[in-house]
């Protein structure tokens, strides 16, 4: 006890520095968590958390009885899995390719161009997409029309929409995602490459046997994080890109929560869905971490 007190006294400046971040997490991350309580209440927005009657698990029963909820859940998994399949490898490939560019100027320039879409908000991207992909007036279909091809309903047919959704996702995020991989690649010992070159390895061989294993821990960590997020889905992307005719696919948990929670003012239900989402998320995260540790020896924690 005495020792640790001395230890504290010696490093008190560090603890003071720590106080800021800790306070931030407590106030802004843990503080609002008392709001979870309304998932177990028949919440009345004018009476508040303290005044609303308790209903136990009734709200969850209602949620699990709603067919719309299952549909939203299914779509969330589907969109996220498809995204994982396409959007996750994209930045890795891109980073590998960028890494092979030898002319520094061109590389910098290419990177900047690739990052740019990341800074556009989904609302703007949604507007651009309408201009580009609309069936009648979209530029893609106008071009196809000149080639004598019938217009393709990119946004109003649900299967086409799914592809559009994924492609736009890759376009928006792949460039930005390369940053972390490029950083990891920089960390690889250049002697390895020299040695490989001495042994007669070509570019592809070096990529496969040095670069990829070199960034494997990074890939695994990011994959685990991604899997942990598989029940979470951002609100703006499906909401902005989706429309009524593809609601079968575009209605996901976040838009469902928005519609039942904010538009119907059914806050208890929205909170219950959110809580469910968080619980499933943490289970998946733990599972993915354990599996990754077993297979590769790398994990987040």
């Amino acid at each position: 006890m005495k020792q640790s007190w001395l230890y504290f006294l010696r490093n008190w400046q560090l603890y003071i520095l720590l106080l800021g971040p800790v306070a931030y997490f407590l106030i802004f991350k843990y503080g609002p968590m008392y709001g979870i309580l309304i998932a177990f209440q028949d919440f009345n927005l004018f009476k508040g958390v303290m005044g609303s009657p308790w209903v136990g698990f009734d709200v969850f029963r209602e949620v699990f009885g709603m067919s719309a909820f299952y549909k939203a859940l299914r779509n969330t998994f589907m969109l996220n899995l498809a995204d994982l399949l396409f959007s996750f490898p994209a930045p890795i490939l891109l980073a590998l390719l960028l890494n092979e560019i030898t002319r520094v100027r061109f590389k910098k320039w290419a990177q900047t161009i690739l990052y740019l879409p990341h800074f556009l908000s989904w609302v703007i991207i949604g507007g651009i997409m309408l201009q580009v992909f609309a069936t009648n007036t979209g530029i893609v279909n106008l071009l196809l029309g000149h080639l004598g091809i019938d217009p393709i309903p990119f946004l109003t047919d649900k299967y086409n929409w799914l592809i559009t959704y994924l492609v736009v996702g890759v376009w928006q995020s792949a460039g930005w995602g390369t940053i972390i991989y490029l950083a990891a690649i920089t960390g690889i010992n250049s002697e390895l490459y020299e040695a490989a070159a001495m042994d007669g390895a070509g570019r592809f061989r070096k990529m496969r046997s040095i670069t990829l294993p070199g960034i494997r821990p990074t890939i695994v960590v990011l994959l685990i994080l991604k899997i942990g997020e598989i029940v979470q889905i951002s609100f703006d992307r499906p909401y902005v890109i989706g429309n009524v005719s593809v609601l079968d696919f575009s209605e996901v948990i976040s838009t469902f929560v928005y519609k039942t929670g904010v538009q119907t003012a059914n806050f208890s239900l929205a909170t219950a869905v959110g809580l469910f989402q968080a619980v499933v998320g943490i289970i998946l995260l733990l599972a993915a971490n354990r599996i990754a540790k077993k297979i590769t020896g790398n994990g987040v924690f």
């Binding site: 106030i27 004018f46 508040g48 005044g51």
Partner: peptide, 18 residues
């Protein structure tokens, strides 16, 4: 202490509406 402060803050704003 910090946590409790956060809680209280939330409560009071809730009951204030009443």
């Amino acid at each position: 202490a910090v946590f409790a402060a956060g809680l209280l803050d939330g409560c009071s704003s809730g009951s204030g509406n009443e």
